[in-house]
Design a binder for these strands. Structure first.
Length: 482
RNA sequence: UCCUGAGUAGCUCAGCUGGUUAGAGCAUCUGACUGUUAAUCAGAGGGUCCCUGGUUCGAGUCCAGGCUCAGGAGCCA
């Protein structure tokens, strides 16, 4: 195969009147003369000009939407408007035909719902090309951020036996013949005979194992897939999603928040630098989408503005208790506009409350800390009760506009007695987590960490509305196609 | 899982209180045109009206059950 130049490079080329080879997929073929060609290196197409009078009509007929072609020609300054350079073709080879009667992508706008049904082909659209290039950059930036800080990328297991965290319903992992699993004398399934000799499942979080790494390597992070078998049908949940989970020894909650905020700003800035054109395209796409909405639901900021705003401003930090006070005094609460009125202290915030704080009250990302201990996980460090005897933990959630919770983290409980007491209270089996408790027995130290939902980050940066559109092949209830 | 809405041509949709042969735009195909940018103009083809059952002389339309999708809620990242 001969060398080819990628379209991104061609469009940036300072030289013209040179011979080039370009390969890609036909987006449109206009006028029997102009091919809009795309190879995924950029959202922009290169225009290939065909001398149709001197080209075999059999070849012309095969240049259809979706076909893969190879073109040799001269890179020249464009004679038409709309592009600066174009390729005057001298040789066109059709590498792969695409039957236009059957090819589902048409040179027209498609709904995101339809494209979701043809996820194997949606990469070939402008929107999804942009999304997945941005996703790639964000992913790379995450690694670069942590590597620059000397964090160790730790691979925590995908298959685990611990469901102890109670982070959600798990997918079981088994080798059994489901119709005929071995039974014990009591008629129970005999997991001793299963592959691992015990019940196992796909991980819901690498945190507990991550903490083990941090207790020796100081600063670690995981970045891998996570699985939750919850029957969630929302625009913010997936059954298989990617999570970034750093754990840092000798960090307290403030250090933890600082790191999370710095990480988010770093990766957003990286994507803005690296994928300017893609994000501009997505920003424009969003603006057009917003025009379809009624005036009062439209956002006053463009995607680009929102991202820049996020970089330029400190995230608002306040405690759960302060948030409750604000919500109690808020206009929608007084006018009984909330579906769930804010009355007492101690219950979890509803989506509408979080949205009010982020989108109406502060109008920027918000970090809520020190939640009531009864609504949080067992491993979070307990605060001293306040003057009124209210018990909280050193938890922090970062809430983003339009997304809700994007980060959940905490300072971990390093005191063995407090941790064991909490596990007893919550019915967490200590014997199963003996290895976790060992870190509190041998050289325990203050430490902290958080989980960042990667797809939620991609949602925010791309301005997309449904999480199923920012992962190549989404897994959700009743769907595992592709 | 709950609430609301939807499912009609390849796509996006219209189809009234049940009535004869189910429509439009785009896409596709054929022809014309040939520096186009969602090209344009003319013509043509294209339907399991989501599935199952029921009511009725007659169902895309009404009823029941199911499936799928979308938005919202809960769970959370």
């Amino acid at each position: 195969m001969g060398q080819r130049t990628k379209i991104k490079a061609l469009l940036q080329s300072e030289q013209t009147n040179i011979e080039v080879t370009v390969k890609g997929w036909v987006r449109t073929f206009r006028n029997n003369q102009f091919i809009a060609l795309n190879d995924g290196s950029t959202n922009n197409n290169i225009q290939v000009v065909v001398d149709f009078e001197n080209t075999d009509p059999a070849i012309l007929k095969r240049i259809t939407t979706g076909a893969a072609i190879s073109v040799v020609g001269q890179l020249v300054a464009s004679l038409g408007k709309g592009q600066t350079v174009e390729v005057k073709a001298t040789e066109i080879e059709v590498l792969g035909d695409s039957d236009p009667e059957k090819y589902p992508l048409q040179p027209k706008k498609h709904s995101l719902e339809f494209l979701r049904e043809i996820a194997h082909l949606r990469f070939r659209t402008n929107t999804f090309g942009a999304i997945f290039r941005v996703r790639n950059s964000l992913s790379f930036a995450v690694h670069q951020f942590f590597q620059e800080k000397g964090f160790v990328y730790l691979h925590t297991p995908i298959i685990t036996a611990s469901d102890a965290e109670g982070a959600g319903e798990t997918f079981h992992v088994t080798n059994f013949d489901l119709l005929n699993p071995p039974k014990t004398e009591d008629g129970e399934i005999d997991f001793k005979q299963d592959f691992f000799g015990r019940p196992t499942n796909l991980t819901v979080s690498g945190q507990l194992e991550g903490e083990l790494g941090a207790m020796a390597l100081s600063d670690i992070y995981t970045f891998g897939p996570t699985f939750r078998a919850e029957n969630s049908n929302t625009t913010r949940h997936l059954a298989e999603f990617w999570m970034i989970e750093p754990e840092m020894a000798f960090y307290d909650l403030t250090d933890n928040m600082n790191l999370a905020e710095e990480l988010l700003k770093y990766v957003i800035r990286y994507a803005l630098d690296k994928n300017k054109e893609d994000i501009e395209f997505l920003s424009q796409r969003l603006e057009e989408e917003e025009k379809q909405k009624p005036q009062n639901e439209r956002s006053d900021m463009s995607l680009l503005d929102k991202l820049q705003f996020c970089l330029d401003n400190d995230f608002e930090r306040l405690t759960y208790t302060e948030a409750i006070d604000i919500l109690k005094e808020s206009t929608p609460n007084k006018k009984k506009k909330f579906q769930y009125p804010v009355e007492g202290w101690g219950t979890d915030l509803q989506s509408e409350h979080e949205r009010y704080l982020v989108e109406k009250h502060f109008k920027k990302p918000v970090i809520l800390t020190d939640y009531p201990k009864d609504i949080k996980a067992f491993y979070m460090r307990q605060n001293e009760p306040d003057a009124q005897g209210r018990e909280t933990v050193r938890a922090m959630d970062i809430l983003f506009p339009g997304i809700g919770e994007i980060v959940g983290g905490s300072q971990r409980e390093e005191r063995l007695d407090k941790l064991e007491q909490r596990m007893d209270e919550m019915g967490i089996p200590k014997d199963e987590l003996w290895w976790y408790l060992d870190t509190r027995r041998f050289g325990a130290c203050p430490h902290a960490g958080f989980g960042l939902g990667f797809e939620r980050l991609v949602l925010f940066v791309t301005g997309m509305g449904n999480i199923r559109d920012v992962i190549p092949f989404p897994r959700f209830p009743k769907n595992a196609e592709f």
